[in-house]
Design a protein around this nucleic acid. Structure first.
Lengths: 275, 275
DNA sequence: GGCGTTTTGGAATAATTATTCCATTTTTAC
DNA sequence: GTAAAAATGGAATAATTATTCCAAAACGCC
């Protein structure tokens, strides 16, 4: 047997474990078995509703290779593995996908097709956010902003809609907040006072004004909450709490669905925390 | 045979048809078969991943009763019926829902729970948009705005983020556009010139300024595209093209996911149509 | 209450699908 | 280049699962 059989003893019991195991063993697998791994990884969602023969055909291997693969993963066979996916199967239901197909069918570039793409991008972003959201960072951010006197919100360009919605929600919830828009090239920096906090939002390509304001606030000892796209963003270096949001772009534009969901949750949580 | 067999000839080919058929025949079915219908209706989402025996057990009937039921619906047997559900199965990622549960588990009111709710609201909105989007109205709206000289965008309060994102996208795509924000109570109404078009956005409770601007534009012979929540909205009366978007609220705040998806699709389509 | 009709349950069978096994090929190590 | 080890494909078999069929039960009608 291969070096892999150290892993043979325990079969993954959740989809998450399954993913990890898959990633861990894929390298160092012989050709046919790797084809299995690749195809399985790319079609996790179809395992629940496929037969050995179908999956094997998709991976372009004989059924027996796929059986071996299941056993390497630690299962007694395909059926046992499939059970995991059948139990976890959640209905991403129904006509939704059919309808999406219809929308896209008009052909690339038609308004309906574009709409279909943006809907899809939004949905993927939300799902990714559900999976990746950092609960600890979110709690931190809520704590920082709840303790602040005034919340200063800054987000320009593509981040501006988010900033303005935050300002709206804070206003409705009676949280003292100020929206910094670059109108008239004034940066209203003097409005930052000790005890305040800054909520800064920016995505690649990062806007300088936003980063500069955040740095400035930091230097003056104010707390900074960063809402950005990656942990490697320049904003992440100056934030006391870092919230990252995975947004799926379609074409040049991002959907903002995930970003807004996170932003509202943050704002509402802060609003309730302040009573 | 029963009175039902008039329907026997054609088997439902989509989930939607299946639903209708089910509803249509359930009354007037003998006891065991009705149990099948009820259980199937309540577990549509598990058909793809279940066996005859499992479903029969769930409905508390012998397998043969379930087989008969499938045939009454017009299928050759269970397998053929199941195929419909296996094919239509849309990849709603397996652990997405698990993770959502985890987020919500923190307890009502915690930041994570809120985030979970907003993600869910966003996703539902997007799905509803996919199902309800009016392709004809969208095409009309694109045509109107593409033909305009300048596009005037107005959306206040909760609609403002949408308006500002539209302004951003139009700018990036070199479409002449002007964002009307209420700054300083100026309404810049004189900026509306013959040949321009207005893109107005408002949701209940509808903002007067937006409606007033739209009416004014209409009176002057400009084309008006309305982006709103219902067909009965006051904005719908003054629009040359009406786009409605079903948004799921959570608490007092709406997710905007669906609205933004529609808005970007519209903007990008207009951008490409203009060259 | 008896007779024709419909419905029912379960056992028998057919079809499909998973799994094993081993002869053959390919790779690896020397 | 050769021998040992690993990987492979496919045919044979086992297991599961779907489907049919029919005797028995329930029902409706007169």
């Amino acid at each position: 047997m291969t070096a892999v059989d150290t892993a043979t003893l325990t079969a993954p019991a959740t989809i998450e474990e399954f993913r990890e195991r898959l990633a861990a063993i894929t390298d160092g697998l012989p050709r046919r078995l790797r084809q299995c791994a690749d195809h399985i990884a790319a079609n996790l969602d179809r395992i629940a509703v496929s037969t050995v023969a179908e999956l094997a055909a998709g991976a372009d291997v004989p059924p027996s290779a796929l059986m071996r693969f299941c056993q390497i993963l630690g299962y007694s066979g395909f059926s046992e593995m499939q059970k995991l996916f059948r139990d976890a199967y959640s209905p991403g239901f129904p006509d939704y996908s059919t309808r999406l197909e219809n929308l896209k069918q008009g052909g690339a570039g038609t308004p309906s097709a574009l709409l279909g793409e943006f809907i899809e991008a939004g949905r993927l972003s939300l799902e990714a956010l559900a999976k990746s959201a950092d609960e600890v960072a979110l709690a931190q951010a809520v704590a920082l902003l709840s303790a602040a006197d005034t919340v200063h919100i800054i987000g320009l360009r593509r981040a501006f809609p988010v900033a303005s919605y935050l300002a709206y929600v804070f206003d409705k919830m009676a949280v003292p907040a100020m929206l910094h828009e670059g109108t008239g090239k004034l940066d209203h920096r003097h409005a930052l006072r000790p005890g305040d906090a800054v909520l800064a939002i920016t995505f690649a390509p990062y806007s300088e004004e936003t980063i500069s304001l955040a740095q400035d606030a930091r230097a003056r000892g104010l707390k900074v909450v960063a809402l950005t796209d990656r942990i490697t963003s320049p904003l992440a270096r100056v934030g006391d709490a870092i919230l990252t949001v995975p947004e799926v772009d379609f074409g040049a534009f991002r959907s903002l669905s995930a970003t807004l969901a996170l932003a509202i949750a943050l704002a509402v949580a802060v609003g309730s925390a302040r009573g």
